[in-house]
Design a protein around this nucleic acid. Sequence first.
RNA 1: GGGGCCGUAGCUCAAUUGGUUAGAGUACCAGACUGUCGAUCUGGAUGUUGCGGGUUCGAGUCCCGUCGGCCUCGCCA
Length: 432
Amino acid sequence: MSKLKRTHTSGQLRITDVKSGVTLVGWVSSVRDHGGLIFIDLRDRYGITQVVFNPNRGKEFYETAGQLRPEYVVAIKGVVSARPEGTVNLNLDTGEIEVYADTLEILNKSETPPFEIEDESKVSLELRLKHRYLDLRRSAMQKRLIFRHKVCQTIREYLDSLNFVDIETPVLTKSTPEGARDYLVPSRVNLGKFYALPQSPQLFKQILMVAGYDRYFQIVRCFRDEDLRAQRQPEFTQMDMEMSFVDENDIIQVIEGLMSTIFDKVVGKKITTPFPRLSYREAMSSYGCDAPDLRFGMRLKDVSDIVQRSDFKVFLDTIKSGGQVRGINANGCGNYSRKDIDDLTAFVGQFGAKGLAWFKVEENGLSSSITKFFPAETQEKLQRHMEHERAICSFLLPISPRWFPSRLRNSVFILARRTNLLIPAYSTFHGL
RNA sequence: GGGGCCGUAGCUCAAUUGGUUAGAGUACCAGACUGUCGAUCUGGAUGUUGCGGGUUCGAGUCCCGUCGGCCUCGCCA
C-alpha cells in the first residue's frame, strides 16, 4: 500500500492551483527524457497532467524517474507550477500548468504493451478484444462508456421524476418465441430441461401493469441467438417501459421529453418538441419504411404512371406485375461517373434491387443510357415530377411488390451515406 | 447456413512473373541531450510468412485442407 494518497485527478489542476502541493496517481502515458530533465504525461480517466522531474531533487529520485516506461502506474507528489512562457500546451485542459515532482513511487511496472494506448486505434479489433483492459484505457473508449453511463443516468432521473418505477424482471425464464431464436441455458436441477434468456422483457411487464405498477421502466439486457452482423450483437440493452391508463399521445410526449432531456443533458443540444410526425401511410409512400431515417431528404417518388409511357421493358414488366417504379432525387450525385453509378448499382443489387436506372440533367434535358426508351414528353414530366435541376442525378428503382418494403430503405440509406447526404442526428429536430 | 476478402517482426503494412540473405514505419533496447509534449539525434536487436499437406530445381507468392478474423446475404424488432 502506498503512503501517497491522491489529492487531485490528472484532469483537474489549473493555473489557479499554482504553488499547491498535490499528489497524483495514474498511468504513465509518455516519457520524454532530455537527459537533464524528464517529462512524463500522467494519465487517468479525467485527463493528462505533465509532470517534470529535475535531477536537482536528488540522484536516486532522478534515476527512478529514468526507469519509467509507458503504462507504469505511479504516484507522484509535487508542487503545481505555471509553465514557462512559450511552453503552454493548449491541447490539454491542464496545459497551463505542470507538476514539479519531489516524490515518486512506482506502484506497478508494466510490460511493453502489445499496442500503444492512443486515441486513434490503428489496431485490429481482434487484438483490442484480446487485451480489452488496455483498449479500455484509451480515452476514446472511456468517453464512450461514460457517455453511455450519462444517458442511463439521465433516463433514470427523468423517468423517476414522472413517477416511473425501475423494476427488474427475471432473466432465467421459459421460452416465449417471438421470431428470433432464444438463448438456452441448461438446468442443473431439472435435467434435460432448459431456461430461455429473454429476447426482451415484454412478458413480465404485463404482470406489473395488472398488479398496479402503472408506470414501469427498465434498462435491460436482451438476448437473441441469431447470426452476427455489423452493428448487431447477440446481447444488447434496451430501455423498456410500460404505462397504464394512457393514450397514444401520452406515450409520444413522454418519449419526446426523454429524448430532448438526453440531448440537452448529455449532448448539450436543445432540440424542439414536438417532433415531426408522419402517418404510417405517408412514411411508407415517401420513404418506403415505417421508421424512416430523416437525416437525409431522399424521398421516394412514385413515377410509375409517368414511366408507363415508355418502351423500357424493365419498368413496364415491374408495373405489370403489380410493382412500382420509384425515383430518388439524388441531389449531390450530379458529378457521378459511370463507374460510380455501376458501383452503386452493384451495391443495391445486394439488397435485391433489380437495377438502378439513372438520369442526369444536362443542358439539353435528361441524359442517360436509356433516354431513347422514353419519349420527350415523358422525360419532361419525369424531370418536373422529380424536381430536377441542373447537374442533379436521379435514380429510378424498379420495385417488385414483394421486395418493396423491407430492403428498399437500406439501399436508400447506403445511397445517402455514399453521397454524404447524412446529417447529424440532432439536426433532424430542427426541421432540416 | 451461402458468398467474398484477409492472415508476413510486438503493432500497422510492403515484398515485381514463383527466384538470391523477407523489408519499411512505429514500438522495444542502449547511448547522447535541461523545456519537451507524435521530443530529437546516433546505434542495436527483432520473423515457425496462422497451421498441415501438395506442385516445383525453387513457394510469403500457386493448389488442397484446416484454424482464426473482417465484410456480406440468409436469418434477426
